[in-house]
Structure formats: structure tokens, C-alpha cells
Amino acid sequence: MTSKPRHAATATSPLGLLLITGAVATVGLLIVAPLASVFVDAFSNGPQAWWEALAHDPDTRHAIWLSLTVAPIAVLINTIFGVAAAWLVARFRFPGRSLLVSLFDVPFSVSPVVAGLALVLIFGRQGLLGPTLAWLAVKVIFAWPGLVLATTFVTLPLVVRELIPVMEAIGPEEEMAAVSLGANGWQVFWRVTLPNIRWALLHGVVLANARAMGEFGAVYVVSGHIAGATDTMPLRVEKLFQEYRTPASMAVASVLAALALLTLVAKVFIERQLETESKELEAARAPGADTDPTTGGLGP
């Protein structure tokens, strides 16, 4: 995303300055100002109040704990799904393949609220599986399994979308080489595929995690919004806000915002690794330039 501009001459021209001002104003007003105000508002009553809002409210504590449980489970499921689906799509040709690829994107174009509703229609008390679940005494809606399902749905495309282009760019040759050298399926995966896709996978995981931690709509619908039981951090932010406890709400929001910033830092770092790797890949495909002085003679 950050390749060097090829042409920087107009940066000091009046039009260039105008464009830069416009871009900086856009990002500044729309993105930076809100982000900064989270932290300012959260700490407006001092760090003490901030800490108390987070640590001394059992419902908030529970929400933090729930978010830290639900998001990793959803991300783990999507990691497994993403790797399997990307392997399937990038390495095999089969009928229905392009339909499958377009299905991967469906969660992007379905409102999270609609997704949550669909889950309620299946797993809710009056839902399709409602009676069965009641008989089994398993609670999905208004309980953490529902949160995991909803979160998994909205983050479904994120890992697989990262992996498919990278795996297609790398190509199957290394894996074929591993097979012809005698490696079995898992050996190919752990020793060849996974090291090759590790940065892309991490990229997807970081994005999925950020989305999972922050998901609101789908989770809102399936959670029942029960404080101390099914409230995740974003839901807690809303509840505190509705209860006119804006400072406490801001405190929770600031934790989420800090997490978002961490995500961004990780993202920038990972993207740099990805860029390096794709350059290496390009170099490896380029005709060998035998300028290396250590090539040495090939005499008998």
C-alpha cells in the first residue's frame, strides 16, 4: 500500500498543496479527530476515574472478559476455514468453484443485523431448532455460542480473502516439489505452505480479530443484551451510553480504540513483511542474474 510515489514534482504546486490539504482535512476531520476525542474524553476525569470505570464495574469486567473469549474463538474458526477454503480454491479446479468464491463474500453484503436475525430464526426459542435445543438444554441465542456464531459470520471473508491472492501468486510448484520429494499432506502444509503464507494469514487474522472485537449489529441481535452475561465490550459501550454514563462508556471505548491502534501498527508491520516477500517471490521468478562473485567455477 505504500509504494514510493513515482512523481513527486507537483507536491509543491498550488494544486498539489490544495489536494494534500483536502486529503489531510478528510482524514483529519473524519478519522483522526474522533479517534483523538475518544482518548481525551476517556481521560477527562483523570486516569483514576478511567481505571475505576473499567475495573470496578463487574458488568464491564465481564464484558471485557467475554469479548476476549468470543473474538479469539471466532477468529480461530475463521482461520481454519480461511486456510481450508483458500487451499481449496487456489489449488484445485472443480465445478462450482466460482460460485463458492462469490459465497465467501456474502457476509460483506449482508447487514450484520440481518445475519443476527437469521441466527435467531434458526436457534432462537421460536426458531427452527428452538425446540430441539430446549430439549437438549443448550442455549445458543442470548448466550455465548450465539455470539461466536454471529461474530464468525461477519468475519468469515476476512482470512480467506487475504489468503487466496497470495496463494495464487505463490503457485503450487513448491508444494508439488515437496510431494515429489515424498512429503505427505500435513508435511506439505506445515513445512511448505504455512511458512509461505504466514504473513498473509497473520494479516487476515489481525483484521478478523479487529472486526470480531468490534462487531456490534449481529452480536446485538443474538445477545439479548444482558448485562453481566451476554454484553461484549461494544455492547457495553452502548449500554453505558444509554444509561447516560458517558465517561464510563468512553473508558470502554478507549480500550477498544487502543486495540484498534495496536491493530493498525501490527497491520503496517505485516504489510511491510508481505511486500518484502512478494518482492522476493518476484526476484525468484526472474531470470537468474549470475553476477554473484561466489558462483565459482564448475570445473571437474
Partner: peptide, 13 residues
């Protein structure tokens, strides 16, 4: 940032 920041936080802010 908007990809990483929970939308609830954005709405609140």
C-alpha cells in the same frame, strides 16, 4: 482506522 475501530466507538464519538 475505520476498519479496525469498532463502529460502536465511532458512533459514540
Amino acid at each position: 482506522v475505520p476498519l479496525a475501530l469498532p463502529t460502536a466507538v465511532a458512533g459514540l464519538v
